[in-house]
Amino acid sequence: MFSLATLLVVIAMAMTLIRAVRGPTPYDRILAVNVHGTMTVLLIALAGFLTDRPDFLDLSLAYALLNFVGTLAALKFFKHGHLGEEQ
């Protein structure tokens, strides 16, 4: 079951990748990357169960926190054209 679920999530990741590559606007790309990130978090957790090593969960927890930071940084950049410091 874990194996099937993992494979389905990998396929879903490949599909979001299509949107990330096609765009057309940067927001679409960020949206796709964000979904892709959520899927990655769960994929890593699933992989931990698949290989019977639940310590992977730490990785997926750290990733869940970081995915958010990357998304927000990118959006801040789109909004203001820079990341805070005066140009």
């Binding site: 099937l4 679920a5 999530v9 396929i11 879903a12 599909m15 949107r19 606007t25 927001y27």
Partner: peptide
Amino acid sequence: CLFVGAVLMIVSALGVIRLPDLFTRLHGA
């Protein structure tokens, strides 16, 4: 749960691809 969840992931990815513009894609996501 795992199966339905994974299928929902696929549906969501499908939504992100199929829906016509950014705001509707957000719902898929």
